[in-house]
């Protein structure tokens, strides 16, 4: 198993957050993590990205415990909902800084610029880019070290139709390259289009784990999003 989560827990004020959660993921799965706001989706993503530390439990990526941060670095790429880039600097500077820190050659930056159609914007400052472009740079940065697991938190939040389509194309390409992908979403069409497996979180617990077909046939989706 590529990702193993055992009893991972993080509670805020004793009720919100993630209750003890366990699941395993094989390489190449594209997993949609679905649930209402506050269900624990982002908490799960951030714990897998080492952004927040769990209260209990553990997770392993390729057999390495996540808390062994230096060993697991480069194996997980995280794309948060709000792009976290150095706004004052250019696209190229941002990518080169992280490529350097990841010990990757600068030729990798050129590859990413081409792969994500960012070459025309390479000298543009991040603060002058649209959210969609910033998100593309963010994804490019997450892929610099060629991680085997990618985590996307609400990747299409705030994007227009064209940018959303472009992002779906990117995600499919990344998945086709054999990467394991987690993404959080509220959008049924997004889940249908992209996911090979769905994890539904409700009040911090997994209430469904199965294929998109099973999900849409079951009452879970209807119950979850019933008006």
């Amino acid at each position: 198993m590529q990702v193993e989560v055992r009893g991972l827990t993080k509670l805020y004020n004793l009720d919100r957050g993630l209750r003890p959660t366990s699941f395993v993921v094989r390489q190449g799965e594209l997993i949609a993590v679905v649930g209402h706001n506050g269900a624990g989706k982002s908490t799960l993503m951030k714990m897998l990205a080492n952004w927040i530390l769990p209260d209990n439990g553990e997770a392993m990526i390729d057999g390495i415990l996540l808390k062994n941060r230096t060993a697991v670095v480069g194996k997980v790429g995280f794309v948060p909902e709000v792009p976290n880039l150095f706004d004052f600097f250019s696209v190229e500077y941002n990518l080169k800084l992280f490529a350097y820190l990841f010990r990757m050659p600068f030729s990798r930056v050129d590859e990413v610029l081409s792969e994500f159609n960012l070459r025309p914007f390479r000298k543009n400052k991040i603060q002058t880019l649209s959210k969609g472009l910033k998100q593309r740079v963010n994804i490019g940065r997450a892929l610099l070290a060629n991680p085997s697991v990618l985590l996307f938190d609400e990747p299409t939040s705030g994007l227009d139709f064209e940018m959303t389509k472009e992002l779906y194309r990117l995600l499919k390409n990344i998945h086709a390259a054999g990467k394991t992908i987690f993404f959080t979403s509220h959008r049924p069409e997004e889940i249908k289009t992209l996911a090979t497996r769905i994890l539904v979180l409700h009040e911090g617990s997994i209430i469904f784990d199965g294929s998109p077909k099973e999900y849409f046939q079951s009452q879970v989706h209807e119950n979850l999003y019933a008006l």
Binding site: A49, N50, W51, R69, T70, V73, G74, V76, G77, F78, N84, L85, F86, F98, L101, F102, R103, R141, A145
Partner: peptide
């Protein structure tokens, strides 16, 4: 940004 940097070595 700190968290982004801490995802590197």
């Amino acid at each position: 940004l700190i968290l982004a940097l801490l995802q590197t070595p």
